[in-house]
């Protein structure tokens, strides 16, 4: 849970946007959409546990 996570997300974002451009120019729009969807899902899978952990710590610390 350090800065690597932000760099990983940036890397996935760059990869997805490049793939999108390539697929769009080769005429496969639907696959471009699927690639961006997949990229977004991967990033969300990385982030959601950290968000859950954040809300857990808030609840325990502030006795909510």
């Amino acid at each position: 849970m350090t800065i690597q996570l932000i760099f990983k997300i940036a890397a996935v974002g760059i990869l997805v946007s490049v793939l999108n451009q390539v697929l769009k120019h080769s005429g496969r729009e639907d696959q471009a959409f699927l690639v961006s969807l997949a990229g977004l899902l991967v990033v969300l899978f990385w982030i959601v546990p950290y968000i859950a952990e954040l809300f857990e710590t808030i609840q325990t610390l502030f006795q909510l």
């Binding site: 849970m1 350090t2 800065i3 996570l5 932000i6 997300i9 940036a10 974002g13 990033v43 969300l44 982030i47 950290y50 968000i51 954040l54």
Partner: peptide, 9 residues
């Protein structure tokens, strides 16, 4: 997503 990660860190 990156800004959410920054906020959490």
């Amino acid at each position: 997503c990156i800004s959410i990660c920054g906020c959490i860190l």
